[in-house]
Write a protein that binds this DNA or RNA. Sequence first.
DNA 1: CGATTCGTTGACGAAGTTCAAGCTGCGTGG
DNA 2: CCACGCAGCTTGAACTTCGTCAACGAATCG
Lengths: 207, 207
Amino acid sequence: MKVNNDDEIAVDSRLVRFRKGGSLYFEGDEVRRSYQIVEGIVRTCRFHADGHRQVTGFHYPGDTVGLGQRNHFESAEAVTDLECRALAIQPDGKARSASAEDPSLADFLLQGALRNAHQSIFLFGRRTACERLAAFILMTARRLGCGLEVELPMGRTDIADYLGLTIHTVSRTFGMLCQDRLIALHGSQHCRILDLPGMRSLAGEVD
Amino acid sequence: MKVNNDDEIAVDSRLVRFRKGGSLYFEGDEVRRSYQIVEGIVRTCRFHADGHRQVTGFHYPGDTVGLGQRNHFESAEAVTDLECRALAIQPDGKARSASAEDPSLADFLLQGALRNAHQSIFLFGRRTACERLAAFILMTARRLGCGLEVELPMGRTDIADYLGLTIHTVSRTFGMLCQDRLIALHGSQHCRILDLPGMRSLAGEVD
DNA sequence: CGATTCGTTGACGAAGTTCAAGCTGCGTGG
DNA sequence: CCACGCAGCTTGAACTTCGTCAACGAATCG
């Protein structure tokens, strides 16, 4: 099966690889296959008329991206070098895979996408840069299941476009969180959470 | 069937009414039934720990709200006096109704919810108050199918909480759009679009 | 070792929030 | 019919935050 995508590197009939920065598919493309992430990180995003990019989500090993009814409503790109399992899409829009005897798979994945979207809306509802970034760090830590040592796999630009901020503000805000002893940075990617209650309260997770 | 909701006024076994401001269901409630709107407007929203409210969407006659897997992830409230058809939810999470023999109904509605959510995310992605409000007015006009005369059914507070702004900024921005002859207001609810191309370009719908 | 990309930092200005006051429309009761 | 109170909307002024512009440091790669 010819796949209209230069970035895709076939390993065997099911496994494919993408280089960091490569595109899995583009917004508007016809839905042909979906990808279950085995290793690496994917970002999904939409581009606006003015060139502005909105990152709509980050996806981690185990997640599946690219499922939809007819055409993709967002693009998907490899944040890191990537390995994933390609799942063919049947005419009825459901993914066919080892686990696809479950007829409600599409439903389940749609629910996931919706939860994802609501998480974004939730983030935007938190108004200040501090609150958004704190929420983002906690969210990522939780998703990676790495306790208090978070290895942020994406760059500042990705974070900025996800949170609706500029890289400058993101960078400055990291600085402020460090100054306030809420986190500590070792390099720009490795973040240690020092004050979990403080972060949770900042992120609006207080109860 | 006893329904745990004082606001709900049963008309017959299927039709229910809510007063303006009444709640259809709350965030966290178990999903028991969904509501197809017959007459009136519904807002769905989430409340944050600090009391801040995020309106996640407005829903119009014909729309169905309250469909979900286990628990509601958002509240639903009547923006205006409301009449809707109550649909029971089966254990598998699908709505049972006249048209529910179609097994992909839930799918369809989920897709709608997702599109809705992405629209919100689009609105929030680094855009000025003018751009957000212009996009909102056009969106509402399109949804109401009322041409250039838009009767905005919701108050300033609802708009503000939907767009992630304060009522002050919303009010000021309405003023600016009027000054620039893009719209005209007659009372705070009735809005006439004077310059459709100008509005579309402001809203980022340019092509 | 230069070139390029990415992240940090400072100065400044624009946009939006906050605070405060006043206006408008509406229902209630005298 | 008007006085009153209330809720929602508007508007002005001061302040805060974040984006923009610009420069610089750090890491990566040929």
